[in-house]
Design a protein around this nucleic acid. Structure first.
Lengths: 355, 355
DNA sequence: TTTATATTCGTGTGCCCACACACTTTTTTA
DNA sequence: TAAAAAAGTGTGTGGGCACACGAATATAAA
């Protein structure tokens, strides 16, 4: 199929003995066309395997798609949120000549009002579509209901809110990611080694997410080691600063010397593992995300496994989903779980050098 | 950057007070242009941040890129080689309106002459570019030297031949893949469990490749377990039929009861693991590639780890490399190692459902 | 000065599609 | 049966770029 040099509407017109105007009417259900000619044109479309040239169409229509992104701010290039951004930038760049344009907005994780302010700014821009990381659930719900009112399509990225009319969710299966973390940590521990789950929370983001991850983690052990006598504890540290984290860890480890493995439910594993190295503790560590700090610690051997959720790819995919919707009216799967890559010291370089 | 609605050559012409013809001359170093006007145009290009519209250019040029692929034949949709093909098809489909066309050729792994025949057919087509899986080294060398004579760019996929003038190699780091396999198998074995490396060879393809993989595998143990007292043996089975493989395995296992882990250096791990299940052997298995058979066995728990080398992505990337070279004259990295994904029962579904 | 040769620059057309517009033919209404 | 309305169809232009061509000017040779 599609072997013969692609057919144009002119070819169709010749075949059906009509003008390209009539072809256009049939193709776009515009104006009236006599039954006989319509039949003939449809036959031509079928016989000649016509596929409109997207380039010419784009040029002719001169449409523009403005998409806005709303993500947590990437304080440094080291932080996780710079990665989805890279993906979005790359994606939009690839569709630039197709009329796609990006306006990126950021909100602070320690300030809900910054979310609202930026969401309002986006509404003011009246974009064609929105890519949103809905880490503040309540504010996000308000935002998307306004988007729905205005018929602006939106996709969730990295975090999901269920039962909304988003085009798609592109991101990890949170529960699955915890489950896999459980499997990996278990594989490097003895059967009675105690485990600590560390939930570091930067701001006021929805804590339900970490709870789901933790559930997945615990479920692994429930299903696979039901009679294990180990303890699995968890602490929540409302900070990501090294000083504060270290203080709480010290307190905890002194009281709980049986801990042999740590699962860090966000991208801050390197903070924990640096602490271990500093104090000569031989604990196993599993965490998330290939941020630079984690890469270093993985290579050092202070982190055993990192689970990565293809952040760059998430951004790319979100843009593609919007584009396909704009141009082809294609409805994506409503949930697109990204692969959860298992990264170890030995394969980390392949991941870094690629994207 | 690139914020203001994109500039066109007409904008340049207005700014520089010349006709678009002159703009064209400057842009493409055609014809002569007075020094003053050239300067002015260059200034315009810079000031207005001009980037030619790829769509319009493609339409105007009406160029066509015919690329040919030459891969081992995918006997069934189950076999590994159907995957890179899918990637190539997807990639070409995406560039269809840009004038890209594909002619896919296949050769038999048990018949070098089929390679030569298809290679000749490709040369007869005089393609713009070639994507080649050079599993027959000698024949491939002859083929690419002819391509070089004719100035036809080519990329290697999945397997590499070094020091050739290929645009790029897109595929796994073979040694690294063996190394990682070593790490994974070691992680599920006791320190004195013996290991068997199974090299199944379908036809006459270059056996140097499996040797490199095996080297990587052994190197892991050399570096990380230098004083281990385990045996690491390897056998080569010149067949992939279940009957023959089973026969040789039986012979081997009866004589070597200490074997506790098996590393299969190609995509046939499921054949081995089915044998284990059949005979109630609790051996650990590590293999390559997410072919359907391996997926089933991974989920059954008969295979412990699969290392996947993103075959679909390899195909996609190869097409993209050629396209970027044709259109932007962009030279890719000469070696692009794909990420080596570690697949376990718990994350396999995310990989299958995505591509 | 005339003729030949370079140099410099603009116009027009095509690529493929969408769409506004104008035109012709048929049907309906008075 | 003429006039008005509706139905059916073709033409032309625009969108951004490449390129063939021709026009205009300048310079050199005869």
């Amino acid at each position: 199929m599609a072997k013969n040099k692609k057919t144009t509407i002119q070819d169709l017109a010749n075949y059906a003995n009509v003008s390209i105007g009539t072809i256009d009417r049939v193709l776009h259900n515009r104006g009236k066309v006599s039954h006989a000619k319509r039949k003939k044109v449809e036959e031509a479309i079928d016989k000649l395997d016509f596929n409109p040239n997207l380039l010419a169409r784009t040029l002719a229509l001169g449409r523009e798609f403005m998409v806005c992104s709303l993500f947590p701010e990437a304080t440094t290039s080291e932080s996780y949120w710079s990665l989805p951004k890279i993906g979005v930038d790359q994606g939009v760049e690839g569709y630039r000549d197709f009329g796609m344009e990006l306006n990126a907005y950021e909100y602070s994780l320690i300030d809900e009002s910054s979310f609202v302010k930026n969401a309002d700014a986006i509404l003011g821009k009246n974009p064609s579509g929105v890519i949103l990381a809905p880490l503040f659930e309540k504010e996000s719900l308000e935002f998307v209901s306004k988007l729905e009112e205005r018929n602006i399509p939106y996709v969730f990225i990295d975090a999901n809110i269920e039962n909304k009319k988003n085009l798609s969710y592109i991101g990890p299966d949170l529960k699955g990611s915890g489950f896999i973390a459980g499997k990996l940590l278990n594989s490097v521990l003895g059967p009675s080694d105690d485990i600590l789950i560390v939930n570091m929370v930067k701001g006021f983001e929805n804590s339900a997410h970490t709870a789901v991850v933790e559930n997945g983690f615990r479920e692994y052990f429930r299903l696979n080691e039901p009679r294990a006598k180990r303890n699995i504890n968890s602490i929540t540290i409302p900070s990501t600063t090294e000083i504060e984290v270290n203080r709480q860890l010290t307190t905890y480890y002194i009281k709980n010397p049986g801990i042999k493995g740590v699962f860090v439910s966000n991208s801050g594993a390197h903070i924990i593992s640096r602490y271990h190295a500093l104090h000569d503790l031989e604990l196993k560590v599993v965490g998330f995300d290939l941020v630079p700090g984690n890469v270093v610690e993985l290579k050092n051997g202070n982190i055993d496994y990192i689970i990565s959720q293809r952040p760059v790819f998430q951004g790319l995919t979100a843009v593609k989903v919007l584009f396909d919707f704009f141009v082809y009216k294609k409805l994506p799967h409503s949930i697109q779980y990204v692969p959860l890559d298992i990264i170890i010291k030995e394969n980390v370089d392949y991941y870094i050098n690629f994207q």
